[in-house]
Design a protein around this nucleic acid. Structure first.
Lengths: 195, 195
DNA sequence: TATCAAATGATAGTTACTATCAGAAAGGGG
DNA sequence: CCCCTTTCTGATAGTAACTATCATTTGATA
């Protein structure tokens, strides 16, 4: 029953502080120019402690809570729906409950990740994991094998469209309605990406 | 007129030797367990020289000559053709002149890249660059802007399909006809990735 | 052969990351 | 309140990728 004890509170507090200071330093002096020592120093811990919380420097930035949320939303869609429609609904549901601050944070993070090669690389691993999850879910829904060429192709194309949409959205300054942009991407994909 | 002098021949020879020895060592003892020092030693050069040829350890493996070739083949396709058809032809033309040895090498390299996270990350940069080039070419052909949402989406989906096809091909042991696999992927994409 | 430019090797340094171990701090039982 | 166990932290030492710099060698050229 007992709420999180002092020990656990201290841990989450330390984690939050390290992330905050790290992002601040990255913005102030750039990602590469910021050392682990500086981050640890700013957060009032030793470098050893930093590595206990984050396996790599990149992980301070790239630790996605959104992808799993959207995958979960996808899973909640009715069984009968076409996979692409299920995904469309899942995206809409998810972003509908994002506050403007959430959107701004998302955009800021995407911009940082885009500007630092090491972070971009790390982000890709996340995306690949998400692609695999989607592939597995779709395989289950349609009664196909996860290794099926079309299942793989569907998942790959879906992720690609999703990413392209977010990129264009960020490049546009985050002014447009993200759900609408992604909707247009999905429509275009469903039509066979004609030009 | 004069053919490449001794100097240049030595350079390409050194490059080839370093790549060869690196791949051998990677296979024998693993990527991470192989140091630059060992590669340099095996190739009979100093570590300094290694870094003069390859900016990073990853670049010994990931330095694609195929992507540019396919982009060039794409560029050679008739102006009037639909972009997706142009790409289909470009792929077919390209792989048609691959020897079985080339195919085996391609497969081996893909497998190595897949198995090492650092290499996968590096490979992505290449793919992103290729995606951009395709986007620009398509924009030019269709008279649209390179930042156009549909142009971006087309390029992203195309690259995704391409990658998915190669992955499935490699997972199948490279037995299937790669051109056929990629053809099926493109057909599926053109149909709107239905499931 | 003498000269110039390019390629190489050697050295020293920075930084991300790992391994290990001793000490501090939190939790639970008497 | 004190002891004991567990968990977290800090310090130290080390590896290896990568950078910067400079002296040396080697291919090209006149």
């Amino acid at each position: 029953m007992s709420r999180p004890g002092l020990r656990e509170r201290k841990k989450t507090e330390t984690l939050r502080r390290m992330q905050e200071e790290a992002l601040r330093l990255f913005e102030e002096q750039g990602y590469d120019a910021t050392t682990i020592e500086q981050i640890a120093e700013a957060a009032g811990v030793s470098p050893s402690t930093f590595y206990r919380y984050f396996p790599t420097k990149e992980d301070v930035v790239v630790q996605d809570e959104y992808d799993p949320m959207i995958v979960a939303a996808f899973r909640r869609q009715p069984e009968g729906a076409a996979p692409i429609d299920a995904f469309r609904s899942a995206l809409a549901e998810q972003f509908a409950q994002f506050s403007p601050e959430d959107m701004a944070r998302l955009r800021g993070r995407v911009e940082l990740v885009l500007s630092v090669p090491a972070l971009r690389a790390r982000q890709v691993q996340q995306v690949v994991a998400t692609e695999r999850m989607i592939g597995e879910m779709v395989a289950e829904r349609t009664g196909r094998s996860p290794g099926d060429l079309e299942v793989r192709n569907f998942a790959a194309a879906l992720i690609a469209t999703w990413s392209a949409g977010i990129l264009v959205w960020v490049e546009g300054g985050g002014q447009d309605d993200l759900t609408a942009v992604l909707g247009r991407c999905l429509d275009h994909l469903e039509a066979g990406v004609p030009l």
